Amino acid sequence: MPKIALLSGSLRRESSNTAVIATIRRILEQQEGCETVDIALRSFPPFDEDVERAGGTEGSRAVAARVAAADALIISSPAYNGYPPGMLKNALDWLSRPPGGGVVKGMPVGIASASPGRAGGANVQPRLAEILTNSGAVVVECAPPVTVGNAVALRTPEGIITDAAVHADLERLVADVLAAVGAPATAPVTG
């Protein structure tokens, strides 16, 4: 039974990336035997090696344990000036520690991005992939990359995305991540 950790790179309550993660959660929950676990950016204090040496914080230890117990991670990130938000980078710094042995080392990680613009945050994905690779994670190659353009308009009041084309792309990402952990996806679920 694969367990997939889900992480929105945005703190905003009505975030498009949080809607992408909520939609991915629904897709995963309809896959036979899949379990999901949500990871909150707010659980991580600013990275500080002194705090790390002292054992981290209760929140950072708890979240790292939840990620470590997962088989894979899926992240949806906004692009802030073409880069992942600082809070997402901070969380990945915590999850990559200690050097050479963090909880994301060897873990398959799928990437999506969403933005109000047409490009859907595509420019953040290579940079996020580089951070993940440097952290020892195995970035799941999804071709073409999963980007959600005009995402603000696509987010429903319930906080999900129901657009058929986007849903199909997210199903493809889920299938690629499940294949990376050796768990085949069941038949696609319609929107």
Rank of each mutant, 00 (worst) to 15 (best):
K3V: 09
A5W: 09
L7A: 02
S10W: 05
R12D: 12
E14F: 14
N17K: 07
N17L: 08
A19W: 00
V20K: 00
T23R: 04
R25D: 15
I27T: 04
L28D: 11
E29S: 11
Q30P: 05
Q31H: 10
Q31Y: 03
Q31M: 09
C34D: 07
E35A: 12
T36V: 14
T36P: 05
D38L: 15
I39Y: 02
I39A: 01
R42T: 14
S43T: 08
P46T: 13
D50Q: 14
D50C: 13
V51E: 06
V51N: 04
A54F: 00
G55N: 05
T57E: 06
S60D: 07
R61G: 05
A64D: 08
A64L: 13
A64R: 15
A65Y: 11
R66H: 09
R66W: 07
V67G: 00
A68N: 06
D71K: 11
A72S: 02
A72D: 04
A72L: 10
I75R: 04
S76D: 01
S77L: 00
S77R: 05
A79R: 01
Y80Q: 14
Y80E: 07
N81V: 05
G82K: 05
Y83M: 13
P84E: 09
P84T: 06
K89T: 15
A91C: 14
D93G: 08
W94R: 05
L95H: 02
L95K: 04
P98S: 13
P99M: 13
G101E: 14
G102M: 06
G106W: 10
M107V: 03
P108R: 12
I111E: 04
A112R: 01
A112F: 03
A112D: 03
S113F: 02
S115D: 01
P116K: 12
G117E: 11
A119Y: 15
G120I: 02
A122I: 12
V124G: 01
V124D: 01
Q125A: 05
Q125R: 08
P126T: 00
R127K: 12
I131H: 04
L132S: 04
S135Y: 07
G136Q: 07
V138E: 09
V139W: 08
V140C: 10
E141T: 13
A143S: 15
A143I: 12
P144V: 00
P145V: 05
V146T: 12
G149F: 07
N150C: 04
A153R: 15
R155K: 15
P157A: 12
E158Q: 15
I160E: 10
I161R: 03
I161C: 04
A165C: 02
V166N: 06
V166A: 08
H167D: 01
L173A: 08
A175K: 11
A175L: 07
A175H: 06
D176Q: 14
V177Y: 09
L178P: 00
A179E: 06
A180D: 00
A180I: 01
A180R: 06
V181S: 03
G182Y: 03
G182L: 03
G182E: 09
P184A: 10
T186I: 04
A187Q: 08
T190Q: 13
